[in-house]
């Protein structure tokens, strides 16, 4: 099981979190149609480091962005969503 470092709660068990989608699949309303289709309906599906949107659903319910390796499950970066704004 992964131990996911929530920026607000500290390291918590994976079972408290839900995966939402890779960051590449986040669609913006101002994107072009081909771009939206590509982002919604296709995936890079990397084998290795991946940038992903997760949620601490059964904890503080905040949205977070992880850089996580899809083979080793190592988490190298955690950023709260909206932190830079």
């Amino acid at each position: 099981m992964m131990l996911i470092p929530c920026p607000y709660c500290g390291p918590r068990a994976q079972s408290e979190f839900t995966f939402d989608r890779p960051v590449e699949a986040i669609t913006r309303p101002d994107g072009s149609a081909p771009e939206l289709i590509r982002n919604l309906f296709t995936r890079d599906n990397p084998k290795g480091p991946s940038r992903e949107l997760w949620r601490h659903t059964y904890g503080c319910r905040s949205w977070i962005t992880l850089t996580r390796d899809t083979v080793t499950h190592e988490i190298s970066d955690v950023t709260p969503v909206g932190a830079s704004q």
Binding site: M1, T18, N45, T70, V71, H73
Partner: peptide
């Protein structure tokens, strides 16, 4: 329910 190639799942 998350992307992985590990062939190794979580106990919960």
């Amino acid at each position: 329910a998350y992307p992985t190639y590990s062939q190794r799942g979580a106990p919960h």
